[in-house]
Amino acid sequence: MLFKLATPQEVAGELGRRLRERRLSLNLTQAETAARAGTSLGALQNLERTGLVTVEVLFRVAGALGVLDQLEPVFVTRSVSIEQMEAASQKRRRASRKGDKQ
């Protein structure tokens, strides 16, 4: 799934499906995973079904499944050079109309 072409609900659903697949690959039950994550069984079931849960539940479950580190790139601040900042702050120019002289 290309996340950039999906709706937020589709991305959340895909995330829930991927976490469910990870849980199953580790041969864990939902109850075991919820206990490891320190969250309710209902919250885990909702995550796997819809992907729509709190960020805290997402982080807890990802940690319990050993994939929390894979979320890190989402929160990395990109460094920007001075040249990039200056270029972004320059006033935008438009092309001249035909017949106009510059």
Results as ranks from 00 to 15, higher is better:
Asp100Gln: 15
Thr39Trp: 02
Leu5His: 14
Thr33Phe: 03
Val74His: 05
Lys91Arg: 15
Val67Asp: 01
Gly16Ala: 04
Met85Gly: 06
Leu15Trp: 05
Gln45Thr: 13
Ala12Gln: 14
Ile82Asp: 10
Lys101Gln: 15
Arg92Trp: 10
Gly63His: 04
Val67His: 05
Lys4Val: 11
Thr50Arg: 03
Ser81Arg: 10
Lys98Asp: 11
Val76Asp: 11
Glu21Gly: 05
Thr54Asp: 02
Leu58Pro: 02
Arg20Ser: 13
Lys91Trp: 08
Thr7Trp: 04
Glu83Gly: 15
Arg49Ala: 15
Glu14Ala: 15
Leu5Ala: 14
Pro8Leu: 01
Thr29Pro: 05
Leu65Cys: 00
Ala43Val: 02
Thr77Asn: 12
Thr39His: 01
Glu10His: 14
Thr39Cys: 11
Leu65Tyr: 05
Thr33Ala: 12
Val53Asn: 01
Phe3Tyr: 12
Ala37Val: 01
Asn46Phe: 05
Gly13Gln: 00
Ser89Met: 08
Gly99Ile: 03
Val55Asn: 00
Ala35Leu: 06
Leu44Lys: 01
Glu86Ser: 14
Arg97Leu: 13
Gly16Ser: 00
Arg22Asn: 02
Ala64Tyr: 04
Arg78Gln: 10
Ala35Gln: 08
Ser96Met: 14
Glu56Trp: 02
Leu28Arg: 06
Leu2Asp: 15
Leu24Val: 11
Arg92Thr: 14
Arg92Lys: 14
Val11Ile: 14
Glu56Cys: 00
Ala43Ile: 00
Glu72Gly: 08
Gln70Leu: 12
Thr33Gln: 03
Gln30Leu: 10
Val80Glu: 09
Pro8His: 03
Val74Thr: 04
Val76Ile: 10
Glu10Val: 08
Met1Trp: 12
Thr29Met: 03
Ala43Pro: 01
